[in-house]
């Protein structure tokens, strides 16, 4: 089926429309964050481009709340979450996929059952647990409950199951022990899934709000999401500053996403070419 010229034009028009709807609000926020105090940000029709672009708001927002420390806190939790999820979920997934042992079904079911329990439904009880471990109001407490997500274990289990067994059997014959087979043979073959797990764990840690809100009380330990809400709730008079804060939170993540999106949509792209 060859698409007609008018259909192509219509397609692109719609694409641009949805593009504007998706990106517009962020672009407007970015523009606001670059406007100087002298500029009226409430005029109508709206002036999109700042008449006198300035980075002052990014400096000033750091003077009101320690936004850069929040960014570092978020980064710490995010990086720790990526490392722990990639390592522990891969180990768990490998055990479920490649070892035969008593209790394997039970362990698999434990991970599956976790998927049915929404985090919000165990929130209060989880808080009591983490507090009893002495981790309330710490970044470790923010990171720990999500440090080896059940969904990641299952994703990696499926990735390992999809690998041909023969390579690992050859490694057994060569005398490789379990850890060597996992580390040298199996792990390098599931890089694609690991990339997805890494991206998803970073996003989950960086974007989470409810859990850090519950567990953190010292404003110095806030992550970016909680810190932003604190900023806008307490000092919301200046939209330019709130806008600068949101950009500090969202731009690094978008940069990361756009640099990795190829991996993310890869499987889908192949499918679409076929279809």
């Amino acid at each position: 089926m060859r698409a007609s010229r008018s259909e192509i034009v219509l397609r692109y028009l719609l694409l641009v429309l949805v593009f504007l709807i998706s990106i517009g609000p962020f672009a407007w926020q970015l523009a606001t964050s670059l406007k100087s105090p002298a500029e009226d940000i409430y005029t109508y029709p709206p002036q999109f481009l700042p008449s006198d672009p300035t980075l002052d708001n990014y400096v000033k927002v750091g003077e009101i709340v320690p936004v850069w420390r929040y960014a570092i806190n978020s980064l710490l939790v995010g990086v720790a979450s990526v490392v722990s999820n990639c390592l522990f979920a891969a180990m768990g997934g490998y055990a479920l996929a490649r070892f035969t042992f008593r209790g394997r079904r039970l362990a698999t079911w434990a991970f599956l059952a976790t998927l049915l329990i929404p985090g919000e439904a165990v929130l209060i009880s989880m808080f009591l647990t983490v507090r009893s471990m002495g981790l309330a109001d710490t970044l470790t407490g923010v990171w720990l409950p999500g440090c080896a997500g059940a969904i990641n274990v299952l994703l990696l289990r499926n990735a390992f199951l999809a690998l041909p067994r023969e390579v690992e059997e050859a490694a057994v014959v060569d005398g490789a022990h379990a850890w060597q087979r996992f580390r040298r043979v199996a792990l390098p073959s599931v890089k694609g899934t690991l990339a997805v797990v890494a991206l998803l764990s970073f996003m989950a840690a960086w974007d989470d709000f409810l859990w850090p809100l519950i567990i953190l009380s010292d404003p110095d330990k806030y992550t970016l999401t909680v810190g932003l809400q604190y900023l806008s709730g307490t000092f919301s008079n200046d939209q330019r500053l709130v806008a600068a804060g949101t950009m500090i939170s969202v731009l690094p993540l978008l940069a990361l996403f756009f640099s990795l999106q190829r991996f993310f949509f890869k499987g889908l792209g192949e499918g679409a070419l076929k279809g």
Partner: peptide, 11 residues
């Protein structure tokens, strides 16, 4: 580790 996390923070 993943099993302990699942038991401790979900189940």
């Amino acid at each position: 580790v993943p099993l302990a996390v699942t038991v401790l923070f979900s189940l």
